[in-house]
Design a binder for these strands. Structure first.
Lengths: 174, 174
DNA sequence: TTCTTTTTTTGATATATGTCAAAAGAGATT
DNA sequence: AATCTCTTTTGACATATATCAAAAAAAGAA
């Protein structure tokens, strides 16, 4: 972030606490906030054909938001729920944008955020093209080693695109 | 696009013709152009582990560019080659941006383009989560019915994440 | 046309993953 | 401790897809 803006931006950030199972963002609504997880886990998901599909897990230090809505300013297909009690830092996207639009460097920071999401998604496609279930699992725990102890298998298997039974067998075989 | 800008934007567009096998954009270089295919086919691909992976096919009327580089302004992991002789409309991203940045509405149009790429990619992840090879194939030919007659199986199978043999069998079974 | 190269198809077999049903385990509640 | 609920594991079997090798077909070049 532009150093001269740091103080102003910090002023926009609030801290909030929520209990496990709290819905941070409701599916089908417009998202106006960016969240940074201080403690706990937030899970981004959506529904399709009765199934609940996990698309992202935000652990300590991770940023989360309904990215599609943040870009489009329209309703999101994603929901975000807390899997543990959480402490979050929250920033209003609207206020952030108002602040940043005063400054010419604004554009590149927003862009970097969007690019990051894009690259992440491209990597996810690549995972399906190149790796089998076991390898995708290994990649996931390498990236987020604590995930497995803290999130149930059903959530993780939907993220990996496999059944819970297969995930259970993979995990055992390690 | 903002209607009042149309004339100015049209002034930036040039028409170019290239032969089959021409490299429109070289892997690992920064991309400065957006292409619209008038006739022919352009294939976006990248290399991984010796393999050539197709990520996008642009047919008549489709837009193509090395999207990662366009967002980041850095070198792209993608290359774009022509699978047939092509007539293209070409616009310099730099010039477009200079023009658009004079106008306040600028932001939302650029954003819409980026969002579109993002949503496309999210759909592609979803394809792997929900659909088997046959279904992914059906979705592809529904979207681009002429693709199969014009692009060889190897390119299409790498896009679908299956082997060429499997694609051949799927196609036969229809 | 004929020859050569590239692409597509076919067959046999192996492996990965899904499905369904049931059992085992863990945590919460009484 | 006993019960209830939710999650995870296990087993048997079915299906999808990969792999390797070879044949057939199509496309391009001479």
């Amino acid at each position: 972030m532009p150093p001269d803006l740091t103080a102003e931006i910090l002023g926009l950030i609030t801290e909030e606490k929520y209990k496990k199972n709290h819905i941070l963002h409701k599916e089908g609504t417009t998202c106006n906030y960016i969240y940074i997880v201080k403690t706990g886990i937030a899970r981004t998901f959506y529904h399709k054909e009765e199934k609940d599909i996990s698309v992202h897990f935000a652990l300590e230090g991770d940023v989360t938001t309904a990215i599609d809505s943040l870009i489009s300013r329209e309703k999101s297909r994603y929901g975000i729920e807390l899997l543990e009690d959480c402490e979050l830092k929250v920033i209003s996207y609207r206020e952030l944008q108002t602040l940043l639009s005063k400054y010419p460097q604004y554009e590149e920071y927003i862009r970097a955020i969007i690019l990051h999401s894009y690259v992440q998604l491209a990597n996810r496609v690549e995972e399906f093209l190149f790796f089998n279930a076991k390898e995708r699992y290994d990649n996931l725990i390498k990236e987020k080693p604590k995930l497995l102890q803290r999130v149930n298998l059903g959530h993780i298997s939907s993220y990996l695109g496999i059944t819970q039974e297969t995930l259970s067998r993979i995990r055992k075989s390690v």
